[in-house]
């Protein structure tokens, strides 16, 4: 199993910074859209962040809750994309 700790931390810090939310309120399985942490522009900027930071390109059909609904989901998605690459 890959070490996802730095990725998870970086994602959490990114979301805390962009949503001005208390870090303690964001758990790995918090549903980030339901919690109002990211709206559509927030998601768009997150996709840009993933591209710039990890070289991940997101396709139309990859935009679904399974890949983006929580920090855990995003970490799994990024890792799977990196494996394919």
């Amino acid at each position: 199993m890959k070490n996802s700790f730095p990725l998870k931390q970086e994602l959490k810090e990114y979301i805390v910074e962009t949503s001005l939310t208390d870090k303690s309120k964001i758990k790995d399985d918090t549903l980030i859209f339901d919690a109002g942490l990211l709206d559509s522009m927030g998601l768009l900027f997150l996709i840009e962040f993933l591209n710039e930071k990890y070289g991940i390109e997101v396709e139309d059909d990859e935009l679904n809750p399974k890949n983006f609904e929580s920090i855990n989901s995003i970490v799994a998605f990024v890792q799977s994309k990196k494996e394919i690459a």
Partner: peptide, 28 residues
């Protein structure tokens, strides 16, 4: 699906070929 809406650009060529790509923030 419970996910915020993200826009794509769709370009239609004269020969009806369709190219569609997710729009990055800057271009959107």
């Amino acid at each position: 699906q419970n996910i915020p809406a993200i826009f794509s650009i769709t370009v239609i060529k004269p020969n009806e070929e369709v190219v569609s790509k997710l729009l990055p923030a800057k271009e959107y």
